[in-house]
Amino acid sequence: MATENIGTFPTGLAIGTEARTNPLDDLDTVVALYQPRVFRFLLATLRDRDAAETLTQETFLRAWTARESFREDCAVGTWLIRIALNLARDHTRTGRFRFWKNLAANAVDVADVASFVPAMEASSESRLIAQQQVAAIWETLAGLSERQRTIFLLRFLEEMDISEIAETTGLPLGTVKSHLYRALHVIRARHAGHAKEAR
């Protein structure tokens, strides 16, 4: 499966390409390259499969209609994630979302996600511990502020640099670091408590 390359930006679509054509004109290629990444980010942010799917569609629609405004001053992936982030913000700020969030039949089940832990653990006990760690991070993320969660996901799920996160979110570098450290502080505390229970 091609999941290994999801977090990286293909060089053909990054800054400094020799071809002067707009990389977003080839929509099929853009979708094939970035749909998994955009969907994954939205799924982890919204925790709702249907909403993530809808907003992924919307992200590419917006990117397509606004492709003339893409000046290649950032990577295509960063630009798409920025669009997805704005859509997710708009989505979560509507009262309708809160209502459906409570009733969502498609809400992500943390246990389901944890069951997808890579099968590199030797023993079933180690695998169980790994699943518990993943579930603990998912649960902890739910309790973080919107900014802390977004920045954590951009850093550790999308593997963006701090400067790239600052560019995507429009926040100063110091603010990004501050939110990230606070998120890590909470996750570390939860992880330490979990480790004590395990012992």
């Binding site: 999941t3 998994p36 994954r40 799924l43 997808f116 832990v117 890579p118 790994a130 550790f156 593997e159």
Partner: peptide, 12 residues
Amino acid sequence: LFRGATTAYADD
């Protein structure tokens, strides 16, 4: 592990 599981789940 969080990243690996989340990526695999999202792909699925």
